[in-house]
Design a protein around this nucleic acid. Sequence first.
DNA 1: TATTGTTATACTCTATAACTATA
DNA 2: TATAGTTATAGAGTATAACAATA
Lengths: 145, 145
Amino acid sequence: MDELDSEGVASDLLASISVLVRRVRQIPTGSGLSMPERGALSRLDRTGPTTSSALAREAQITAQAMGATLSVLQERGLVERRRDPDDGRRVVLSVTAAGRQALQDKRNERAELLSRALSSGDFTRAELKQLAAVAPLLERLARSI
Amino acid sequence: MDELDSEGVASDLLASISVLVRRVRQIPTGSGLSMPERGALSRLDRTGPTTSSALAREAQITAQAMGATLSVLQERGLVERRRDPDDGRRVVLSVTAAGRQALQDKRNERAELLSRALSSGDFTRAELKQLAAVAPLLERLARSI
DNA sequence: TATTGTTATACTCTATAACTATA
DNA sequence: TATAGTTATAGAGTATAACAATA
C-alpha cells in the first residue's frame, strides 16, 4: 500500500493548503489587520521585544518584507520601536497595549470564521483533533524544506 | 482540556499553512510551471474536459484568474481549447499529451522537494500518516468557509 | 436576464538590488 | 567585512469592473 507515499502526500498537501490560504485571505477583515500583519504582531507578542531581522528569520521572510509590515503596525500604534543604546544598528520592537488589544480583536475575525466552519458540524471531534495535531507538523515541514 | 478549542486550532493552522505556502512558492521550478498553473492543469486532468468557469468554481478562484492561467497553459501546448458546437459560449478544455507529461515532470520539483523533506527522517511514519489524512480535511475546510 | 469568456486595471505580498549607518 | 535597517523596483497571483457574445 502506498498510502504513505511521501510524494503523494506532498502533492495533496500543496493543493489543499493553497486553496485554504487563498480563501482565508479573501475574508474581509474589519479591524484591518492583514495576514502578514497579524502574523508579525502575534509573533512579536510571543517572542517578546526583539529586532525586525530576528523576526524575519523566524518567519522565514526577507528583512525588507518584515520591515514593511512592522512599519505599518507602528503607524497604527500597535508596535513600538526603540533604538538599542548599546548597538546603534539595532531597533528593538515591542507590542503596545493597543497591539495586544488588536490581537484579541483579530481572533474574532479570520480565525473565528475558520473556527465557526470547524465547529459547524461538518467536522467530527476526531477530525478536529487531527487538524490540531497537524499544525506543528506543517510548521516543521516548512522549516525543513 | 481545551485541546479541541476550534479557535486555537484555526489560529495555529493559519500560521503554519501561511509559512508553508510561502516557502513552497519560493522553490525555483525548472520546468516553469507555477503553482496556479500546476493546480489548474492537474485539476483539469482529474476532472476531464470541462470549461474554464467550471474549473474556476471548483478551484474557488475567479473566472478571470483561471482564464489567465489556462491561456498560459494553452500557449505552451499543455491544454487544448475547443468551442462547444452546441453552445457557442462554452469553450471546452482538455489536457494534451504534453500537458500530462508536464504534470509528471512537475511532480519531480516542488512536490519532490517537499517529499524529500517528509522522508528525510525528520518525520516519523505516524506523522506522515497524520499529514496524509489531513489534506482532504483542509480542502473541505476551505470549501466550508 | 443569465452565463461564458475576455480585457483592463489595481491591489497584496514578497523578492532582489542597492544603499546608509554602525559594529 | 559583517550586520541592521531602509528605499526603490519588480514580479506573482488575485481581485473588481466593464464589456461582448451567446443562451
